[in-house]
Design a protein around this nucleic acid. Structure first.
Lengths: 156, 156
DNA sequence: ATAGTTGCAAACACTTTGCCGGTCG
DNA sequence: CGACCGGCAAAGTGTTTGCAACTAT
């Protein structure tokens, strides 16, 4: 079903350079962390990993780099239904949108892409005359393992 | 803007009473504010309106009442793509899900419901064996009025 | 009677800003 | 060289917690 997850490494660096953005040692480090992550990372996790590669990096630099990437549309921001705190999670802006399902019991995040969603976007652009730049779909519920053995005490 | 409210006023009070939740003067006030709102309100707006009806109400009581409603699945929480700050917005949990489109230029929020989305949810429950409790769809872009006369400088 | 709720103050989690010395091109 | 960037400290925003007094059932 899904496309391969990995684009060429260094893609974020190349993309920013081609837009005339200055490239520093710290930015390269942070970009490589985001690019090689196999899961959604929050700012604190990005900082921790970046510091393993370059211990002097500051929290603020991580936040500023994330904002830079957002402004350029190169990363998407997720909340994952705030299942654990108010932090944000980041992922590379994908070629094709996908939905995020978060299990409110075990916290697992599933991703899903669907032609139906592409059709839905088309319907929105047509019926609402709305030009879509970014989508964020977060669905809470019980994953296959957790369904059945839970009361419906949702907290989202 | 929200779709026309089809439920009876006082429904939130009735729903909570039927679940054995204690009903205080403050809660009645806050519930009525949420119930009569014609737009998505954040906690600060709910507080401001509640204080017009009962000036002694505290910020903390608003937050606690919101949490109560979330736990009971009676309100949904939205971020509206954090277009202005990190606050959350609340709306009564609708009978039928809808999507939120936020114009990144003028900030307008449009709502949209669609059979395609219902089918998408069905597909997810089937293909992923995921039992859906809550959905949050937030789409950013340019509304009909703002499209065309903007550079693509997104910040979401 | 008593478990649950309130208001106040304080703490909290996460993110942004101001400043100045350092760096990229 | 000059605009831009990084690190540090501090502030900011939005939300939650601890606790004594109060209230709904």
């Amino acid at each position: 079903m899904p496309l391969p997850q990995t684009e060429a490494p260094g893609r974020l660096v190349a993309e920013l350079l081609s837009r005339g953005v200055r490239m520093t040692r710290q930015r390269r480090t942070i970009l490589s962390v985001i690019e090689t992550a196999s899961q959604h990372l929050d700012a604190a996790q990005i900082l921790r990993r970046a510091r393993k590669l370059d211990p002097g990096i500051d929290r603020v630099t991580v936040y500023r780099t994330i904002r830079l990437l957002k402004r350029h549309g190169l990363v998407d921001e997720l909340d994952l239904l705030h299942l654990e705190g108010e932090k944000h999670y980041y992922e590379r802006h994908p070629q094709r949108d996908h939905l995020h399902m978060a299990c409110v019991r075990c916290g697992k995040i599933l991703e899903f892409e669907s032609d139906l969603f592409e059709r839905l976007k088309g319907q929105i652009q047509r019926d609402c005359q709305f030009h879509i730049l970014v989508t964020r779909v977060e669905i809470g519920g019980y994953c296959a393992k957790c369904r059945g053995n839970s009361t419906d005490l949702r907290s989202v």
